[in-house]
């Protein structure tokens, strides 16, 4: 939709000003994220560009905030916790979620609507409400695990946070995997069965490779949900289970340190990598299902 050669002056002005407006909105969307990155290399403990930085003087830049992130025991504990909690929660949501999505995509499922509503509900209910409910329930669950099962306190703390995060990730797995299964050609499994493959072989050799892109992108969503989640972990976990977002949240609310910006930059780089992965997977999945790549 270019500008036609016969466009009037008014149309030209509108055409260009509309582009400018859209440019400003895109700027609004991206600027805060982009601004954070150079600031994280600030040699000073400020949250703004120092004169040295504006002059592009190398003395104005340093890696000290990154160094702090990688040496400070608080941040390292948070990083370690995030890397323990998110993957385990993801494995739980992906394995249970994929099975259930396959079950849901069968043709005759009784109470399908109700089941679907229950499974999607963790995404619908605002986090603060989930966190409130979990706060009440998980503290009694934790007491029970400690006193009756005799588990140690730290372990129980992780179990609580992991369970909470796993259930928050489930809707994403269900949605992405069911979406992939919609385009799944059932005659393929029938053909496999016809040739003598058992249900397990059919699942792993035929169905799984075809729905794998959906499973992986569901898993990525579940991972991001847990990795980025702060409200529930604040309510359910204790200080020894603090995750990266928890540490950032505390830092933002109390004494704000520029290390947060270094962490933010690292997280932005990670999210760009994840975004690229999901996009590639989506294209691959559409190609596999014979749709045009879009």
């Amino acid at each position: 939709m270019g500008l036609p050669p016969y466009a009037t002056l008014g149309q030209r002005i509108w055409y260009y000003s509309f582009r400018v407006i859209c440019g400003l909105i895109f700027f609004f969307l991206v600027a805060p994220i982009v601004v954070v990155m150079p600031l994280s290399f600030n040699a000073q403990d400020f949250f703004t560009f120092t004169p040295e930085m504006l002059r592009l003087d190398p003395a104005g830049y340093s890696l000290k905030h990154y160094e702090d992130f990688f040496t400070n025991p608080q941040w390292q504990l948070a990083l370690k916790n995030s890397l323990i909690i998110a993957p385990i929660a993801t494995v739980i949501s992906v394995s249970l979620g994929t099975l259930a999505a396959i079950g849901l995509s069968q043709s005759h499922v009784p109470f399908k609507g109700t089941i679907m509503a229950i499974l999607i509900s963790p995404m619908i209910v605002p986090l603060i409400i989930s966190a409130t409910g979990m706060f009440f329930f998980y503290s009694s669950l934790g007491n029970w695990m400690e006193s009756v099962l005799g588990l140690n306190k730290g372990f129980v703390g992780y179990v609580k946070v992991i369970l909470a995060h796993a259930v928050l990730g489930i809707p994403f797995v269900i949605i992405t995997v069911t979406a992939t299964l919609v385009g799944f050609d059932r005659s393929l499994t029938r053909a496999a069965a016809n040739m003598g493959a058992g249900p397990v072989t059919t699942f792993f050799r035929i169905q799984m490779p075809l729905i794998l892109p959906g499973v992986i992108s569901g898993g990525l969503f579940a991972f991001i949900t847990s990795f980025d989640e702060v409200v529930v972990v604040l309510f359910v976990g204790s200080a020894s289970q603090k995750t990266l977002p928890w540490q950032m949240f505390i830092g933002l609310r109390e004494q704000i340190s520029p290390t947060i910006l270094a962490v933010a930059t690292i997280l932005v780089v990670i999210s760009i990598a994840l975004l690229t992965t999901v996009e590639l997977l989506r294209r691959r999945s559409e190609r596999l299902r014979g749709m045009s790549p879009g």
Partner: peptide, 18 residues
Amino acid sequence: LLPFWTSLLVRTSAWKVM
């Protein structure tokens, strides 16, 4: 999609900085 995928805490801290 970039802001959509970026951590909520990152975007909030960015606004605090801005």
